[in-house]
Design a protein around this nucleic acid. Structure first.
Length: 922
RNA sequence: GCGGAUGUGGCGAAAUUGGUAGACGCACUAGACUUAGGAUCUAGCGCCGCGAGGCAUGGGGGUUCGAGUCCCUCCAUCCGCACCA
């Protein structure tokens, strides 16, 4: 076996690529562009694990392929460097997050370089770099200075709105703005104070301050996500958490709801992602109906998609946090209602959502009148109604909605059947089938007809209207944290003011601690000079993690530019991402926000595209495969997997690096921790066999596999090919090193086509045989096809088949092996570069041109058709390529074999599926 | 509860439009070569059965000459979530 010294080869070529800037991607109008992008990583302290490079390797292969095919490829990498873990670490250690982030990035880069990616590192971006976040702040300013004009259906400059106000007030303006915006005339506007004007404009701006309900933890002095709240207490520390309204920066993403749905048809994204985004935006057509509260001036407006069921309403339900509750509650119910509301307010939305089994609520003692029939219906509060959705009030129809039904059953409220022939005592009937009964003016109609009639009736009588409702809410954009982009905002007379462009970037100030202040202000409240020169206070919250990631793909086009976020020239050349690879967990987060920002930038003429990524592929996560040892309870004795059933054991995670093929290295285990020094073992067949569990790859579970170790042992080319060989890119799969030998063996075999056991060059100039050419061209065709479909695992398999076939033929001919090296180079670039050079080529293989396959070597002169008799395939027959069905049928029936199988009977039916099969039914 | 996905040998998997299920690789078995290697080569390898043959793509049903693939239904696992009226 020949010597394939991967370490030496890989070092050499990585150095070559770096020094020669082989993958520099600059504007080149003579070539078509191809922009391929990975979701950039958050540089965590744990370093890169083998799961991270999966998508990166796939994009690297595609990128190198495109380069061979003559495209100008932009394949950049950067870091999503703001985030909570660095801040938590800073809180614990006092180390500035910038320092730890810097160290982590250095480590990530080193690890990435080991794998031989074709990145243009000159294009690197980091969201936490002031040169980068200067532009995040700048885009924030543009959002602030924009409003959404519904008449033109796009974002426009706020100055235009002000001009319109001065001319005509806001009467004629159709804008996406706060619901409570009042009408005013031009004269009104001119009479307002600056602060009043400022407050009104805030209701129109695409980013604005609004009171938002958050999970506030007074003890930690911070806002928690739903995740971090368990039963009304913080997950860390167990401190009480309350739902509290705080002024927060929001993004008016709702203005774009329709366009975000509609434009999905223009992008080649996976259907599940499109589906998730559509559901998240949640457009629904329905009606708003206003109920009068009995004996008061109060009204309750509800939104419903099933206005046809209006006569089945037997109670109304308000969200417990609704302001109306206090105003309508009767004296004798006050205590109960307040107690319930307090309890409900302190549950996170997530908890309220998952807890469907417990029916809870309280009667307010008040009644409303159904505007259709003046029926008196009780008003309840319940935590299954959310304040943030729709109007925060629901009309309950137990006959038509299961949740309302459960509620009615539990509190013994009436259930009024409204569709003929349905049985609603036990279960609601949510279908829209049948004829309406007990429904006044709607009787006898189908539900669909009833919806129209009920809407018309409500509109005529002024107590309701049709309405399109969206589930999506404006996105909260502020965080009470340190390690994020500061807002370019200060406050004058309590009204936000923007910092001038020449003051950007507004850099994060030093602070003594990364915790909130004693008075509950965010960490930036600790900064000494966190005021403008005039003494006005700066905004103290920072932007969320998704701020930088919402536009970073444009920055890669021109990352060093300090005049613009990217030059017009670069934006026009690179346009958009041709292929974006990343996890589906970002479906309703990053992937939606970045579409929103792109549309905004497009509206304001700042980018030339409406969508930033033509095609998206979701790579599956590589999970960890944890190794488990079984400790017998109460002892320090560990029992092998096969024998564990005989004992009462506890599962202990052991470091996967001490385990090979499930066999535990007992010595390393004993030295792992002091308490294991005296561990005893019950073995099977003299070995300790570990169990395994598929879990997230994480430091905590000791199942992290570092790609560096794999590279050291097998080489980067093997790692790259093995990660692809592991299975389809989109699939979730556990990391398992078991099969890597097969890929390693393949690369050694590949090497042995070119060199003998003493590394003597074997390749000859001899002319290739048709058989050899066929093998090569089949491989070119197959690999090209697979790469197009991103089915990289099957192309690796095909390389293996190809090499095996060439070895069987003892083929060492340049005519075959040179194109083969080009073909393989995107997958295993180092080994192919080396071969390419030894074959006698001066430049990098990335400058080679991609071999074309020739049809004549691949396609057969005739097709072989399997012939089946009564569904069972019995034989194969060859026919000419020219497929005349009648001709084929004649030939089939005349065939000796067929006659034998059908025992001479004439088939009742002959089915010919072109290119597939001929089926006879006897 | 809602939304999304997945389910094929001992294992990772393949099967591109419905057409001979299990390519390729791992593991395993047997053999060859061997101044023993975690090397290389050759053969075997879904399950049951001596065999002919039968059974097999999570379970059940359906469409079809023909289903891993399409439809219905149930089960299991994973991911996301803002109970979406």
């Amino acid at each position: 076996m020949s010597v394939y010294n991967f370490t030496e080869i890989e070092k050499k070529w990585q150095k070559f690529w770096k020094e020669n800037k082989t993958f520099k991607a600059d504007i080149d109008e003579s070539k078509p562009k191809y922009y391929i992008l990975d979701m950039f990583p958050y540089p965590s302290g744990a370093g890169l694990h083998v799961g991270h490079p999966l998508g990166y390797i796939a994009t690297d292969i595609i990128g190198r392929f495109k380069k061979l095919k003559g495209y100008n490829v932009l394949h950049p990498m950067g870091f999503d460097a703001f985030g909570l873990p660095a801040e938590q670490y800073a809180i614990q250690t006092g180390q500035h997050p910038a320092v730890t982030t810097e160290e982590n990035i250095a480590r990530y880069k080193e690890q990435l370089e080991n794998i031989g990616f074709s990145y243009d590192w000159d294009k690197e971006v980091r969201t936490s770099d002031p040169d980068f976040y200067k532009w995040t702040q700048w885009i924030f300013k543009q959002l602030y200075n924009s409003w959404y004009n519904k008449s033109t259906d796009k974002a426009e400059a706020i100055e235009e709105l002000v001009a319109a106000f001065e001319k005509n007030g806001n009467q004629e303006i159709k804008a996406h703005c706060d619901e409570d915006t009042e009408l005013f005339t031009a004269d009104d506007w001119k009479g307002y104070s600056d602060a009043q004007k400022s407050a009104i404009l805030l209701k129109y701006r695409l980013t604005y301050l609004a009171d938002t309900v958050v999970n506030w933890c007074p003890a930690l002095g911070t806002v928690l996500s739903n995740d971090e709240v368990k039963d009304g207490f913080s997950e860390r520390g167990g401190h009480p958490v309350e739902r509290k309204k705080m002024p927060q920066w929001n993004m008016r993403i709702t203005a774009y709801a329709d366009r975000l749905i509609n434009d999905l048809q223009d992008v080649d994204w996976p259907d599940p992602i499109k589906e998730m985004q559509k559901n998240w935006i949640g457009k629904s057509k329905g009606a708003e109906v206003t109920f009068q509260v009995e004996n008061t001036a109060h009204e309750i407006t509800v939104f419903t998609t099933r206005i046809d069921t209006i006569y089945g309403v037997t109670f109304l339900v308000l969200a417990p946090e609704s302001e109306l509750v206090e105003q309508i509650v009767s004296e004798d119910q006050k205590e109960e209602v307040t107690a319930y509301a307090t309890k409900a307010k302190n549950r996170s939305e997530r908890e309220r959502m998952s807890d469907v089994k417990t029916v809870s609520g309280a009667f307010t003692g008040a009644y409303a009148l159904n505007p259709y029939n003046q029926e008196r219906i009780p008003i309840w509060i319940a935590d299954y109604v959310l304040a943030g959705y729709g109007t925060g009030a629901v009309m309950a129809v137990p006959a038509g909605d299961q949740r309302d039904h459960d509620f009615a059953k539990h509190f013994d409220l009436p259930i009024q059947p409204i569709i003929d022939g349905t049985e609603v005592d036990e279960k609601a009937d949510p279908t829209k089938e049948g004829k309406m009964i007990n429904s006044g003016i709607l009787d006898g109609l189908s539900p669909m007809e009833a919806i129209d009639k009920a809407c018309d009736y409500a509109e005529e009588n002024g107590f309701g209207k049709t309405k399109v409702n969206f589930k999506i809410r404006d996105a909260v954009f502020g965080r009470q944290r340190y390690w994020g982009e500061p807002f370019p905002v200060y406050f004058k007379d309590d009204q936000p003011q923007l910092l001038a462009d020449d003051k950007l970037p507004l850099e994060l100030p030093p602070v003594d601690k990364f915790l909130p202040t004693e008075t509950g202000e965010p960490p930036l409240g600790r900064a000494e000079n966190w005021h403008t020169v005039d003494g006005y206070p700066y905004e103290m919250t920072t932007m969320p993690g998704w701020a930088g990631s919402s536009w970073y793909f444009f920055r890669y086009m021109d990352p060093a530019n300090d005049q613009e976020f990217a030059s017009k020239e670069a934006l026009n050349y690179w346009q958009d991402v041709d292929l974006y690879v990343g996890g589906s967990e970002h479906a309703t987060g990053h992937l939606l926000y970045s579409r929103f920002w792109t549309k905004f930038l497009y509206d304001r003429g700042l980018v030339p595209v409406k969508e930033y990524a033509k095609k998206l592929v979701n790579q599956g996560m590589i999970q960890g495969r944890s190794s488990i040892a079984y400790r017998i309870n109460g002892t320090n004795t560990y029992v092998s997997k096969g024998l564990r059933k005989e004992h009462d054991t506890a599962k202990i995670h052991v470091d996967v690096n001490m385990v090979e093929n499930d066999v535990l290295d007992i010595e390393s285990f004993k030295n792992w921790r002091p308490d294991l020094k005296d561990a005893e073992f019950i073995l099977e067949d003299g070995k300790y066999i570990c169990g395994d569990e598929v879990e997230k790859m994480s430091k905590r579970l000791y199942n992290v596999v570092n790609p560096d170790d794999i590279v050291a042992k097998y080489g980067a080319d093997t790692l790259r090919m093995y990660e692809m060989f592991l299975g389809p890119l989109e699939q979730f799969k556990p990391w398992n090193t078991h099969g890597i030998d097969g890929v390693y063996k393949f690369l050694r075999k590949f090497w042995s086509l070119y060199f003998d056991g003493n590394n003597q060059y074997l390749v000859s100039e001899e002319k290739a045989s048709p058989e050899e050419l066929k093998i090569l061209h089949k491989a070119i065709q197959k690999v090209e096809d697979d790469v197009d479909r991103l089915s990289l695992n099957t192309s690796v398999s095909h390389f293996m088949i190809t090499v095996n076939e060439l070895i069987a033929l003892k083929c060492h001919k340049k005519e075959i092996l040179e194109p083969l090296a080009i073909l393989l180079s995107p997958f295993a670039p180092h080994i192919c570069e080396e071969i390419w050079q030894i074959i006698g080529n001066a430049e990098s293989i990335s400058k080679a041109s991609y071999p074309q396959f020739e049809q004549k070597y691949v396609v057969e002169a005739s097709h072989e058709y399997p012939v089946s008799i009564n569904g069972k395939v019995r034989t194969k027959l060859s026919f000419a390529i020219d497929e005349d069905k009648a001709e084929i049928e004649k030939q089939v029936l005349a065939n000796e074999m067929v006659q034998k199988w059908t025992e001479g009977k004439t088939p009742k039916k002959v089915i010919i599926v072109p290119k597939r099969i001929i089926n006879l039914v006897v």
